[in-house]
Simulated assay, not measured.
Amino acid sequence: MRRLPLVLFSLPALLTLGVFVLYPFLDVIRFSTWEWSGLSEPKPVGLKNYRDLLLDPAFWGSLWVTLKFMLLALPLFVGLSLGLAVALEGAPYERFAKSLLFLPGLVTLGGATLSWYTLFTPEYGALAQFLPIPPWDREGFWALAMVVLFTLWRHLGYGVLVASARLKAIPKTLLEAAYVDGAGPWEALRYVVLPLMRPAVAFLVVVGTILSLQSYAAVFLLTRGGPYGATRVLGYYLYEAGFENFRLGYAAAVTVVILLLTLLFAYAQLRLLRYGEE
């Protein structure tokens, strides 16, 4: 009986989670067992969509592109978030700098991509008149690098705020004790600050993993998966399957796989980050 109030207070959150998360996910799983174009009558096909997915070279190519994107974006996202948070801590311009870093996340995605395209197009971009802009519209590596830079520009401010919030929670007495014991700034950062930043690092790794594996909007608006499929991440592959090829059942199977991969990577990274604490 003592737990009854806890259950009652949790009920609104559980209902919201069930209606807006669990039920749609179960519905997607149901759709993934259909052969369905969205206009025709759904035809149950069992696990055929998953079998076709595993035999599709385009899926494996998209998965490889997504992993490359994650390997480029995730270390930069976490490292820059921590580095900028430490560098800005206590600076007189700290709030102003953090506001500037967070500002790109408030700009609408369409306006942001249009601005980047106008500025960085190699042939006629505004900055191309003054700086050597790599041919990211023709070469795969530079196209992927452009998407990574755009993603970092959009989300780095959020990462800095998360790292900064954890940094400010570290008791100043610990740093003062380290300095009294003869530690320099680098030793205090390495042996005091960074170990205590582990929860923020774990959170940023999970957030960065989700952003990487579910990236789509920047690719759709900047490169459309090109050139030659070099930026066709899983999110864009899902869009092509569902809304260009009208294979909604197949696209639902891709959605399930993306979600499972996201959960798998996030769980594995959390286990690795918490291994030293056990």
Rank of each mutant, 00 (worst) to 15 (best):
M1Y: 09
L4Y: 00
L6P: 02
F9P: 06
S10I: 09
L15Y: 06
V19G: 03
V19I: 02
F20P: 01
S32V: 07
G38M: 02
G38R: 05
L39A: 10
K43M: 13
V45C: 05
D52K: 11
L54I: 04
A58H: 11
G61Q: 09
K68W: 15
F77K: 12
S81A: 13
S81D: 06
A85G: 07
A85I: 01
A87V: 04
E89N: 15
G90C: 02
A91C: 08
A97C: 09
L101S: 00
L106R: 06
T108C: 05
L109V: 15
G111N: 06
L114K: 12
W116D: 04
Y117D: 15
L119Q: 10
G125A: 02
G125M: 06
A126T: 04
F130G: 07
F130K: 12
P135V: 00
W136C: 05
W142Q: 07
V148N: 08
V160Y: 12
A163N: 04
R166C: 10
L167S: 00
L167C: 04
A169L: 13
T173I: 12
L174Q: 13
L175W: 03
E176D: 12
G184L: 08
P185R: 06
A188F: 00
Y191A: 12
Y191G: 14
V193A: 01
L194Y: 07
P195R: 09
R198L: 12
R198D: 04
V201Q: 09
V201P: 08
L204F: 01
I210S: 03
L211S: 10
L213C: 02
A218Q: 13
P227H: 09
G229F: 00
G235K: 10
Y236H: 05
G242D: 10
E244C: 02
E244A: 10
F246M: 11
F246P: 02
Y250M: 11
V256R: 03
L259I: 15
F265G: 00
F265T: 14
A268D: 08
A268M: 11
L272C: 04
E277N: 06
